[in-house]
């Protein structure tokens, strides 16, 4: 059986091609489709196993990152999307895609409410930044993270600071096991100052899942580490145990 992945693009999404590469290399059949085409033909969504929200600058991050793209989905294909999720299929949102699905309420979606209670806002540093960070898997009940302990990945964003509406929300995230990835400092885990936590995220959170674990959002870019030579230190022979590609392999293998 072939595993099919749909990646949405349009309106300033710009990391859809490498996300397709990653899914293809992981063994999926992957289509990139403009959001407008999905809105016109909503039923195609049900043909896919996996839905990917790629990184980029949808609508220029104007007003707030991901907000307008999220609204376009909310007011047009939200019901189909909920059905997709409720049926246990997999969804990933990376960087701008994470911002989109968080503002849409797909994450953390306590009690399946789709109510936005978490957001991603301007980095504490005050600016966009491209650097590699180490993240550790806090809870791998999500199929996306099966067998992965830590990952070295690039972050490339100006608005990646994960905040919660209040402290109760953060506690609930932790208690539910929805905190999937946290930034970490390999040399000195107690020192999580900048740039180990690159944006000032609460509780060093780099990625979260919904309660069921099938929807996963993260700020770092696993698709940007789909092969060894994308690692910053590969020229000195560094080879990591797991690379970004493994996340996509997990998703495809989940259906096999």
């Amino acid at each position: 059986m072939s595993i099919k992945t749909l990646i949405l693009t349009g309106y300033g999404i710009n990391a859809e091609k490498e996300l397709k590469w990653a899914f293809d290399l992981a063994g999926s059949e992957t289509d990139i489709i403009h959001l407008e085409d999905l809105i016109e033909n909503k039923s195609i969504l049900s043909k896919y196993n996996i839905l990917g929200f790629a990184g980029g600058f949808s609508f220029g991050d104007h007003i707030a990152s991901g907000k307008v793209f999220a609204n376009l989905i909310k007011y047009n294909v939200f019901e189909d999307l909920k059905k997709f999720i409720d049926s246990g299929k997999l969804v990933i949102g990376i960087c701008n895609g994470f911002q989109v699905i968080t503002k849409l309420g797909l994450l953390p979606s306590f009690d399946n409410s789709y109510e936005p209670v978490v957001s991603l806002t301007a980095n504490d540093s005050g600016h966009f930044e491209d650097r590699w960070v180490t993240v550790k898997v806090e809870n791998n009940k999500s199929p996306w993270l099966h067998g992965i302990d830590t990952l070295y990945l690039p972050v490339r964003h100006g608005e990646g600071k994960l905040i919660t509406r209040d402290s109760a929300t953060l506690e609930r995230l932790k208690k539910n096991g929805q905190v999937a990835l946290r930034y970490t400092n390999k040399k000195n885990p107690d020192d999580m100052s900048y740039p180990h936590n690159p944006n000032g995220s609460y509780y060093d959170i780099a990625g979260i899942t919904n309660e069921a674990g099938n929807v996963f959002g993260l700020m770092p870019h696993p698709e940007a580490y789909y092969c060894n030579e994308l690692h910053p230190n590969w020229t000195e022979g560094v080879i990591e145990n797991k690379i970004g590609l493994d996340i996509f392999k997990n998703a495809v293998n989940y259906f096999k």
Partner: peptide, 13 residues
Amino acid sequence: RIYDHEVQARTVN
């Protein structure tokens, strides 16, 4: 660092 130098996943140096 404030420039994105890795989008499109091609930058190996």
